[in-house]
Design a binder for these strands. Structure first.
Lengths: 251, 251
DNA sequence: GTTATTCTGTGCGATATATGAACAAATGTC
DNA sequence: GACATTTGTTCATATATCGCACAGAATAAC
């Protein structure tokens, strides 16, 4: 790609939109400039552009994103067959299991939720499509990383901030890569309170008709309610069933 | 705002992203140019920029958005208190009702889903945060339009393509404005298969502590399962309860 | 109330981008 | 296989944007 094939004004604008996610919903020009590392004048032009187009509100002092911005993510969610295809199956799965069911894909070091059917709230954090979690300590993340060649998974781990969210969290890259091998062999991953105390989850890959892993689905349950050791017995059959149903539908 | 306070490269790029929503997930340069009405060379630069930043994949022929694009919508969903506050209450509501519960806000002539707890699939279309429906024939849309002054609601109706999705759909602006008055008086709206045959729903406004309507929540049910006339009796009490709980939490 | 600091808005030269035409490659048509 | 269309890419140049520096307004500090 040549230098001139890059629209830096566009790239800067996207960076400005993302700046909103990290802090509060209202940003002044100076705050946005600090968060993005861009020049104030540039940020101001981007924000005024967003406001002009209706993607942001401006009260003369602060800018705030409007729901119109959801059109951008929606362009992906509705245009990509995956979320639309998976959602109804998650609804069924969730109802059958009596627990929350989710689907996600990998984006860099994180998993991104693309669909979700919540039965009850088991996590302190609130998940919705677009939400992100570190891959290394989430059941779907384990499954997705396990689907990659070892060196790629290692490279992602190397770029990850491997922090111990709970006493259970595995943070040793060597141990994690060994875990990926286990996951690859078994075809599922179980997380026992590695992300948050009190939360267990089990995930399986979603494969397309050529056997490539294109996403992961999981069921999460409160540890108080379901022991980690029971997860497979209870939920693996229905996860496998959903997995099997989805497979011929993909690509 | 001055001419130079508008970054047209940014605006064009956003338009290109939205072009994906309308058709398939893969777009060639020429297709994107046709959909956006922009020059091929310009669209090409925008698409290459998206690819360079990881928001799109490029196989040398077609571009497709990647899940990274969800960061943009997520910037709104996580930064805005409304979706994050409402979601857990929707989960509860949905579980209690045994039906899907959703929350939405108004964006132009459409409602935009900002949170959703699906119990089972009752609609042919698949809803998720960011999904949009025409306001005039959706229960939450009725509630949101009813919260506006008559002339504003009328102005929105004037810009709406008032089509009869089913034999039940109300499409006469005069009738609709009268309906808004009724909704305002009763404090809730019921839709009896106006959007889709077989689907009923009931919505109430979500007000902040100053009594301003900031969103709407609803419960949808299959008409075969729940008569429209029973909707209020069955679900209004729990909607009111959620409404009451949310009120002091907002702003 | 004064000073210091931070912020927003503007003008300008340097730099980057958009445009439409031109061309080559790919695709479709007969 | 030749012709017509469509598509992707490149180029020159007219136009728009960027980042800087500065002025004035708004806050904050004292």
């Amino acid at each position: 790609m040549r230098e001139t094939d890059f629209v830096s004004g566009f790239a800067r604008g996207l960076k400005v939109i993302e700046a909103f996610g990290e802090t509060r919903q209202r940003l002044s020009i100076a705050e946005a400039a600090r968060l993005t590392g861009l020049d104030r004048a540039t940020v101001r032009r981007s924000l005024l552009t967003l406001a002009e187009l209706g993607y942001a509100d401006y009260d003369g002092k602060f800018f705030a994103l409007t729901p119109k911005i959801l059109r951008l993510g929606h362009a992906y969610l509705s245009a990509t067959p995956l979320p639309v295809l998976i959602q109804p199956h998650l609804d069924q799965l969730s109802e059958k299991a009596g627990q929350s069911a989710s689907a996600s894909v990998l984006d860099g070091t994180e998993i991104v939720y693309i669909a979700r059917a919540s039965q009850r709230r088991v996590m302190s954090i609130n998940l919705m499509p677009g939400s992100r979690l570190p891959a290394y300590c989430a059941s779907m993340g384990r499954v997705l990383l396990a689907s990659l060649p070892d060196n790629e998974a290692r490279s992602i781990l190397a770029r990850t901030d491997l922090r111990a969210n709970t006493p259970n969290t595995k943070t040793d890259p060597v141990e994690l890569v060994a875990e990926f091998r286990r996951v690859r062999e078994l075809g599922y991953a179980i997380i026992d309170q590695e992300l948050e105390v009190g939360l267990c989850s089990i995930a399986v890959p979603v494969e397309n008709d050529r056997g490539q892993t294109v996403a992961a689905i999981n069921i999460g349950a409160p540890a108080a309610h379901v022991q980690a050791s029971e997860m497979a017995q209870r939920y693996l059959p229905m996860l496998r069933e959903t997995q099997k149903t989805l497979r011929p539908m993909l690509r």
